[in-house]
């Protein structure tokens, strides 16, 4: 996966696998934009089970609260979260 530049619009994948993941369910399928690029960091989905992790880019993604919660009282407030590369698709 190519590194995503800050500002790139992205969608969080809608996968719902069991097991240890660090992508919150409330952001799955939601659209935001890359705020900054971090990492690489070891994939927690491998670290959690004692495996040697792949090193992945980690992105801080900024979402509008209104894009996360349709009923948000203040839709222009924002929410930032760190999402590993394999959970994102560029739009």
């Amino acid at each position: 996966m190519q590194a995503l530049e800050p500002g790139t619009p992205v969608r969080v994948r809608r996968m719902m696998p069991p097991g240890h993941v660090r992508t919150p369910a409330y952001l799955r399928g939601k659209t935001g934009a890359v705020e900054r690029v971090l990492g690489p960091f070891g994939n927690p989905e491998q670290l959690a089970y004692g495996h040697t992790p792949d090193r992945l880019p980690l992105y801080r993604v900024r979402f509008r609260l209104g894009d996360v919660w349709p009923d948000a009282a203040t839709p222009d407030d924002t929410l930032d979260a760190e999402i590993y590369a394999h959970w994102l698709e560029a739009l």
Partner: peptide, 16 residues
């Protein structure tokens, strides 16, 4: 367009 919450686990509590 709320994602299907099936499979969401107890600790993943943002927005609940």
């Amino acid at each position: 367009m709320t994602p299907d919450a099936t499979g969401k686990r107890w600790h993943d509590m943002g927005g609940d």
